[in-house]
């Protein structure tokens, strides 16, 4: 029953934990930005009336969503060296995987976001002489993004939690930091307990923030 947290000094935190935390945050932010951009493009493809755009986008989303995240991580990890002929390391492989994976999820969110904007809005855009892309860029997407903001943020919290899955290819993230500390000091109980608390505090405060934004969005409507 006796727990001993004394090994967990500031020194340990800055040496092992911060490095992992920074990678997890960077992975989350890079994936958020790139995933949203690519996801929006996929969403537009899926809503296109041209089958040649529509079907590949649909196939991509269905394929990615039917695979476990860990399998996608493994896939990218062996496919990249095969395609470009050399290994790029697990951190870089993680960036690619997470963008590939999350784009599919963000695309679904953006798709329902675009659909949540009334059809007449697009026609109103055409009516004042805007092109398809201009109407999308200046009229539809800003509304879609705003309607979906809470969902996008919630998905991003899930994404932050999922960064722990880079464990499968040994990249150095927040969880890896705690694992190393646990092994170095042979204190797995304390190390994983702290890990859980840290993840909880981060994710709980983020989701509390999302709730506040949600309220604001609702008021703005």
């Amino acid at each position: 029953m006796n727990l001993d947290f004394s090994f967990f000094t500031l020194n340990i935190i800055s040496n092992f934990i911060i490095k992992g935390l920074l990678f997890s945050i960077k992975l989350t932010l890079v994936t958020l930005v790139c995933g949203l951009i690519i996801g929006t493009m996929i969403a537009m493809m899926r809503l296109s009336k041209f089958k040649i755009l529509n079907y590949p986008a649909l196939g991509y989303v269905v394929l990615i969503r039917s695979l476990p995240f860990v399998m996608v991580i493994l896939w990218v990890f062996i496919l990249i060296p095969l395609v470009i002929g050399k290994s790029i390391g697990s951190e870089n492989s993680a960036y690619i995987t997470y963008i590939v994976f999350e784009s599919a999820f963000y695309s679904e969110i953006m798709r329902s976001g675009i659909q949540s904007v009334k059809k007449e809005q697009m026609q109103a855009g055409y009516a004042v002489g805007l092109t398809y892309f201009q109407s999308m860029r200046y009229i539809i997407l800003p509304q879609a993004f705003r309607n979906m903001l809470p969902v996008i943020l919630t998905q991003t919290i899930v994404l932050f939690q999922d960064t722990s899955l880079v464990y499968a290819i040994g990249a150095y993230d927040l969880l890896k930091g705690f694992e190393i500390v646990s092994k170095n000091f042979n204190r797995p109980v304390e190390a994983y307990l702290i890990a859980a608390v840290v993840y909880f505090i981060i994710c709980f405060s983020l989701s509390y923030g999302v709730k506040l934004t949600q309220r604001k969005v609702q008021i703005a409507k």
Partner: peptide, 19 residues
């Protein structure tokens, strides 16, 4: 709900295994 939603699954597995 908040506890089990806000800790990554992998970390929860380690909790069951180690803690």
């Amino acid at each position: 709900t908040e506890i089990f939603r806000n800790i990554p699954l992998l970390v929860q597995i380690f909790l069951w295994y180690h803690v």
